[in-house]
Amino acid sequence: MRVLIVDDEAWARRRIRSLLEREPDVEIAGECDGGAAAATAIAELSPDLVFLDVQMPDMDGFEALAALPPETLPSVIFVTAFDKYAVRAFEADALDYLLKPFEDSRFQAALDRARRQEGDRGQALAAGIERLLARLPEEKRRLRRIVVRSGGRVVFIKTADVEWLEASGNYITLHVGGEQHLVRETMNRMEPKLDPEQFLRVHRSAIVNLDFVKHLDPWFQGELTLSLTTGARVTVGRSYVDRLRRMLQNSVD
């Protein structure tokens, strides 16, 4: 079993490392001291299990998970010192967690459970984590970075840099600075994770970043389109016209 250790404090990582070193079947895949590093490491190393600290200054544990495509999520044991809110969420979704400080026996129990689940992790766990993320307060749920694979490399894309998102089957194409990145995600799942002040669904298969909207072209060839500062044109769906108008109205007021 390959395990990744994530905590912003070296001593806390050492504690987990020393406990894991006793386990013959465990291989320590790596250590990360922050959420962003953790998301990259999960995408690159695809570990079987992650010990994930919840509170970290750069990007918290939930955010790191939200940045990853659901089907790449490993088994996760959350580690937290004091967060009543998170603990309630873990309990509700039967996700495993450790409260700092923890004893060897408690650690052992969590590890054993993860071992048993190793076979059928994935689906159930991904669903659990998704429900957990959905239950978090809005601002914690916001996606600030998206992890994509590009030519065998793992790339972090700042959500704010994404000009627009286009659905293509079970995937979404992110248009960023002249490049296109494919993420395995659906529009309906992506939309609520984006900041509604900045991103707007304008079509069944398009979400635009309002920071990149240049102007609205009235019924260009029978259809309403948005011109982006990058020169791209995005079609506005008929059922989204009213919402867009209202949004633009508000930004004028």
């Binding site: 404090e9 806390a12 504690r15 020393s18 010192a81 700092k100 400080p101 923890f102």
Partner: peptide, 18 residues
Amino acid sequence: QPHFLFNTLHTISSMMHE
């Protein structure tokens, strides 16, 4: 400061072994 308190206790629990 419960968060700080428990984190520090965890640090100590880790240090004790080393």
